[in-house]
Computed example of a mutant assay.
Amino acid sequence: MPRIFVLGASGTVGSELSRLLAAQGETVVKATSRAPTAPDQVQLDLLNHGGLSTAFNGVDRAFFLAPPGHTNQDVLLAPLVDEAKARGLKKVVLMSAMGANADDNAPLRKAERRLEASGLAYNIIRPNWFMQNFNTFWLQGIRSAGQIFLPVGAAKGSFIDARDIAAVAARLLTSDTFANRDFDLTGPLALDHNEVAAILTQASGKPIGFTDIPPEAMLTALKEAGLPQDYAEFLLVILGYFKAGYAERTTDHVREITGQAPRTLAQYAKDYKASWA
């Protein structure tokens, strides 16, 4: 039976995507950087591409994403695209990030272009900032001080639930309807972080606010959290784009592809309220 390869299968999007595909009766191959501990896993080291020659055995479709913590996404992803081409995969879906196509010289855009030029049937999805950041990356400030600490001012973002991203990817991997198209994915509404904090407060019952901090303070916090200098600086740059208003735009692509409206932040907050309570 043909199999679908999922990179980042233990991550926020990849885990939900794997669940959705399995629920549809698809056979999923989950990539792991460690020695496999389950029959549905295959080892693949993105940094040195160890295991790449066997990772796609029996695979006919694949989901790739830009690995977090690294800024040379093109270097990491290009060999996967080339191997997919050599294996003649029927479809590759690549998840990058909204705005990645603004600069042809940006690493993520180079990875996108590699896929576009491969001759493979493909889709590229570019989600906006995840709602799930509030129960993961920005959680420490909420738990310790009841505050979302970010250098974004009053700018708004059309945050998207990672579950909707996974639903889009699942549809694209199992259908040829939208072949060779790229999509920016957003939630239904743009909100600033004071509005986000109010919604999280209502859902959790815990007072949560927003504090706009200087970029230098954000950089220090990211480095103290263990992020490499280059990746911390990269995050600061894209947070700067958020502050400049580039994350406010909304699209209707989630509904177009899945037939369902994207989740609201209120729906997300209700589902994840235990994270902040």
Rank of each mutant, 00 (worst) to 15 (best):
D164T: 11
E256T: 15
L222D: 11
V13M: 09
L239H: 12
G88C: 08
G119R: 11
A78Y: 10
N57H: 08
D212A: 10
A225R: 15
N133L: 08
A117I: 11
I160G: 03
E116G: 07
E256I: 09
R163K: 14
L65D: 01
V152P: 01
L44C: 08
G69A: 08
P188E: 06
I165S: 05
L77Y: 07
P151E: 09
R113L: 14
T136V: 12
S144A: 13
M95F: 05
V42F: 00
G88M: 07
R109Y: 12
Y268F: 15
A35Q: 13
E233V: 03
F64Q: 06
G88K: 10
Q229F: 08
D103S: 10
S118H: 02
L173N: 08
A269N: 04
K85A: 15
K85G: 09
N123D: 08
S18D: 07
A9S: 12
Y268W: 14
I4M: 02
R163F: 09
R61G: 10
V254M: 07
E83W: 01
D252S: 10
E195P: 03
L89F: 01
G153L: 04
A9K: 02
P68S: 10
A166P: 05
I125N: 06
F137E: 10
A203S: 07
Q267V: 13
Q43K: 09
N180R: 05
S144E: 15
L89Y: 01
T220K: 09
G14S: 11
K223R: 15
N194Q: 12
A55L: 04
G157K: 11
H70S: 04
I4N: 02
L44K: 04
T177I: 12
F210A: 02
A221P: 01
D60C: 03
V237W: 10
V42Q: 00
E216F: 06
H253V: 13
L219W: 06
I148M: 12
T12Q: 11
V6G: 07
Q41P: 02
T186Y: 00
A244K: 15
L52D: 06
R61L: 06
Y241W: 14
V13P: 13
F137A: 15
V196G: 08
Q260P: 00
T174Y: 06
D40F: 05
Q41S: 03
G58T: 15
Y231H: 06
N72Y: 07
